[in-house]
């Protein structure tokens, strides 16, 4: 909100130049300080493996600080490292699929490595898989072929949904079973448990009524009220999610600070 209050027009040229110079100066000083620190740590290390480790820690710290620089504003250093990350992530992903999946699960089986009989019929599966690559063609005439594997996976995924749905909802410990089992008085342990179970079922049904679109909510007073209370009750779930999200997000930053302070700067942990 305050962002909207901030002046959106560019500051005058002179001021902008001053800010830019200050930014460059601060960046330069920080870079010099970090470089000196890394060099000193490497020089003071005991042996080659320690020196290597100090260099690696330094590299990791530079990466961390480079990304943090985005908080000040978008800048070329951040953008560079962002591209590097995209590259490394893609390269690693493809590499690991090759060595962990394609080689042991296909190649070794097909050529019969490690004493197993060769099964040359396995050649057919990557050939079917190659149809994915028609995605690279812009021409619909060719691009069309890539739909064969896409819809194959879609078809089997969609039909699997039934199995999953019934397991999830009506299985032995299924969600629906559990909800309504809970109201039976003999399943409760004590009065407090029974009250909780009743509250539970009531909330679940009220929230469900919010998703009940077979009747118009406006014309049906009962549904209107239950849907409205369902909306309030859903806020409890969203509030809990916000509460735990704060913890989750802060953890991510604490992890980086832990690295910077303990691992890199060597504060006692």
């Amino acid at each position: 909100m305050a962002d909207q209050v901030q002046p959106t027009a560019d500051p005058p040229d002179a001021r902008r130049a001053r800010v830019r110079t200050a930014e460059l100066a601060v960046t330069g000083v920080l870079a010099a300080f970090i470089t000196i620190y890394i060099v000193v740590r490497i020089a003071r290390a005991d042996d080659t493996s320690q020196r290597m480790l100090m260099l690696q820690y330094g590299l990791a710290a530079v990466c961390t600080l480079a990304i943090f620089s985005f908080l000040y504003r978008e800048n070329p250093i951040y953008r560079f490292f962002e591209h590097v990350l995209v590259g490394l992530a893609t390269g690693y992903f493809v590499g690991i699929e090759v060595v962990n999946v394609i080689i042991p699960n296909w190649w070794n089986k097909m050529v019969g490595a490690k004493g197993a009989p060769a099964e040359w019929s396995w050649i057919i599966f990557p050939i079917i898989g190659l149809l994915w690559y028609f995605q690279l063609f812009r021409n619909p005439r060719w691009n069309w072929y890539s739909r064969i594997p896409i819809f194959f996976f879609m078809g089997y995924g969609a039909s699997l949904a039934y199995k999953g749905f019934f397991n999830l909802m009506f299985g032995e410990k299924g969600q629906v079973m559990d909800t309504f089992r809970a109201v039976l008085p003999f399943t409760a342990v004590g009065a407090w448990d029974l009250i909780n179970n009743l509250i539970y079922v009531a909330i679940a049904l009220l929230v469900l009524s919010y998703f009940f679109f077979s009747f118009k909510h406006e014309t049906n007073p009962l549904l209107r009220r239950s849907a409205a209370s369902g909306r309030y009750l859903m806020m409890i779930a969203f509030g809990s999610i916000f509460g735990t999200t704060v913890m989750g997000r802060m953890s991510l930053l604490i992890d980086r600070l832990y690295f910077l302070y303990h691992t890199w700067l060597g504060l006692p942990g």
Binding site: Y200, M247, G248, R249, S251
Partner: peptide
């Protein structure tokens, strides 16, 4: 799981579809 996802996992904890739940750093 991460903290963000923990509230969504409680129905399964109640139904014993999961027998234990660790929520984030806590």
């Amino acid at each position: 799981c991460t903290g963000v996802m923990a509230p969504e996992a409680y129905p399964y904890f109640k139904s014993k579809q999961i027998i234990g739940l660790l929520s984030g750093m806590d």
